[in-house]
Design a protein around this nucleic acid. Structure first.
Length: 607
RNA sequence: GCCCUAGUGGCUUAGCUGGUAGAGCGAUGCCUUGGUAAGGCAUAGAUCGGGGGUUCGAAUCCCCCCUGGGGCUCCA
């Protein structure tokens, strides 16, 4: 509930015209005038409907509090819808306002309620003292009993078809142990900053943009390249799986009932725009995908069918203190894949394939995932065998959460998490079986009996957000720092080969070598600055360049080059073909994009 | 959002209880044309996060705000 309190010399009002939701009133209530009045403009909001008693109580106590300070003769409850962008239903709103009036009278105040649902003219004279204009947001604190009643989830470790108590399980995987501790709230924090935050800036990938909102990043050319490569990777993966890439708007009109209901599930964590139309920014691709699917004609022959979109961007108004680095953003890019399945059995088949797809990304990106399977108790009981076989696909113990009752739109989901340097999970891929949205968005298909039916929808993000993938890769370099030099895999390295000419006379040769490598789809650059070889080698290393080639007199004479290999820290003698073959082999099957930077380092901008 | 903590050239930072900012890296210029993780010299670059206050005088003390980090809570 939103209220605006005006302490006025007088308030005059007159009803003019009825609206559809107008209450019936006696003639004497059609106009009125009140002196020394505390006018409480009030908007009842959607969320107030959960707990009307508490809302009335809190609103009244706030009004009494203010009136104790300004000492008005009258308190006027004035229904004023324009204070909120998320109004509750008129019937309930009226009821709440009536109760407020009653409570105030009961407390001995001269309270009066202005008629609801009429167009009214009014005139108010604000006193203008410091407390004469106040606004308040009234919320119902969640009742203690209500919280206590909610049954907690049951946690297990599922290993080789058997359930174990997480508190006594002998963990072989440190990562699963950490994930379990985190989920059960047992993880102790060291209070450090995750190392990827520093790395993303140091490597000129991304940085905070203080002129935007918190949690929105600027991406420098190298970072943009890495994002694009990962996007290409997911695109190739899901299209191979059969998904159809689409693109949908990033904002939606909350006047649409289905959009509004789906959006309201997200609560305060969304961006809303106070434009003429009440718009929200999407927090996932669901809105566009569902609207597209509900407008398309589906038959059982089409199913299962999937649409895929890379959400550049999704927006979530995460709480201020939760926004950190690449791990949790307010604007992020999420591969979002929705597949429509005829029924539960078909959705389980799809789920299995999507587990394979998520596992594949772990392999391709070389990120270790630990898995959590979550489902309602009902779903688990009915599909125990399938759950266990799905868990088997992970090939190691997983965490299992059984929720006593369904509280979200999904009945079963699997989340995959990477573990960061500080031992905390970064939630990456996810698969969810959604049993609510088809009906809400009126997505139907024609079954074999020619009847219209609601399908099951699976949400899947095979990698999780692109930013989190980059974050996980950076965290991994920090974790492995002592075992090997930090770097990206070659296919993701913004610069794959650096050519270093020793003196001026080696320049032409170096450039032509670079151009030949570039022609073989290798991202190569030339450090032709007037610096010592030692310094250029060092620079190349701090930029994590996998291959560095020094060109001097010897190289002009022979066809062999001395190549510094970052991964093994070896110096190898290779000819041009060997270099090209080695790199092509290393990046095989992975996307390629050309170097989006000047070939010559002297031309390069320092971000 | 709440609690704790921090903010000094592009980056890393020195600056004790108030006296008007010092360095390294980087950048630019000159010298060096060199063989595998920092060559030498010089120059430029700072409204000390912003606003207000206390004071003869504030990077330093006080208040408000912004931004970063950590914690709580939360991630349908």
């Amino acid at each position: 509930m939103r209220i605006l309190l005006i302490h006025s010399d007088y308030l005059k009002y007159k009803t003019k015209q009825k609206t559809k939701i107008a209450e019936d009133i006696e003639d004497m209530k059609k106009s009125g005038e009140f002196e020394n009045a505390l006018v409480v403009f009030t908007a009842v909001e959607k969320e107030d409907e959960q707990n009307t008693g508490e809302i009335v109580e809190n609103a009244v106590s706030e009004i009494i509090n203010v009136s104790g300070q300004v000492k008005p003769d009258n308190i006027i409850i004035y229904p004023y819808a324009h204070l909120s962008s998320s109004l509750g239903s008129p019937q309930l709103a009226k009821k709440i306002l009536e109760n407020m009036e009653f409570e105030l009278k009961d407390n001995g105040f001269n309270a009066f309620r202005i008629p609801f649902g009429w167009y009214k003219s009014f005139e108010i004279s604000c006193k203008g003292h410091p407390l004469s204009e106040l606004s308040r947001t009234i919320t119902a604190k969640p009742g203690e009993e209500e919280k206590a009643e909610e049954e907690p989830s049951k946690w297990h470790v599922l290993s080789k078809g058997e359930l174990h108590d997480p508190n006594n399980f002998k963990f072989e995987s440190k990562d699963l142990k950490k994930l379990t501790d985190y989920e059960l709230g047992k993880l102790e924090s060291t209070g450090e900053e995750p190392p990827h935050v520093k790395l993303m800036r140091e490597k000129s990938l991304a940085d905070y943009e203080p002129s935007a909102d918190a949690g929105h990043l600027r991406w420098y050319p190298k970072g943009r390249l890495v994002r694009d490569l990962l996007s290409d990777y997911v695109y190739n993966l899901v299209t191979e799986y059969g998904a159809m890439p689409v693109e949908t708007p990033i904002m939606y009109d909350l006047a649409d009932e289905a959009i509004r209901t789906h959006a309201d599930k997200f609560g305060e964590r969304q961006y809303r725009m106070g434009t003429k139309k009440e718009l929200m920014l999407r927090f996932a691709c669901c809105f566009g995908a569902f609207r597209m699917l509900s407008d398309s004609f589906l038959t059982w022959k089409n199913l299962p069918v999937g649409v895929y979109e890379l959400s550049t961007y999704s927006f979530r108004l995460e709480k201020r203190g939760e926004v950190v680095g690449l791990k949790r953003l307010r604007g992020f890019t999420m591969p979002d894949f929705h597949s429509v399945c005829a029924d539960i059995p078909q959705s389980l088949e799809e789920f299995d394939k999507q587990i394979d797809m998520c596992m594949q990304t772990g392999k391709d990106l070389n990120i270790n995932y630990e898995a959590i399977f979550r489902s309602t108790a009902d779903f688990y009981e009915e599909n125990k065998e399938w759950v266990h076989s799905a868990a088997e696909k992970i090939g190691k113990p997983i965490l299992l959460e059984i929720l006593p009752k369904r509280k979200h739109y999904w009945i079963a989901k699997m989340d995959f998490a990477a573990i960061d340097y500080l031992g905390r999970p970064i939630e990456n891929p996810t698969i969810q079986i959604d049993v609510e949205s088809a009906e809400r968005f009126d997505i139907t298909y024609i079954n074999e009996k020619e009847e219209e039916e609601y399908p099951i929808i699976i949400h899947c993000s095979p990698t999780g957000s692109i930013e989190r993938v980059i974050g996980s890769l950076l965290e991994k370099t920090a974790i492995e720092m002592n075992e090997k030099p930090p770097m990206f895999p070659t296919w993701l390295s913004p610069i794959q080969v650096r050519v270093i000419p020793i003196a001026e006379r080696h320049m032409d040769f170096a450039i032509s070598l670079a151009e030949e490598l570039r022609a073989s789809n290798i991202r190569v650059d030339v450090d032709e600055r007037h610096e010592t070889v030692g310094k250029k080698i060092r620079n190349s290393a701090t930029e994590w360049v996998p291959y560095t080639i020094v060109i001097g007199d010897k190289e002009l004479e022979s066809d062999k080059f001395t190549v510094n290999i970052r991964e093994t820290q070896e110096k190898a003698l290779m000819n041009k073909e060997e270099i090209i073959n080695r790199i092509s082999n290393e990046v095989k099957g992975m996307p390629f994009r050309p170097l989006p930077l000047p070939l010559k380092l002297s031309k390069r901008v320092n971000f």
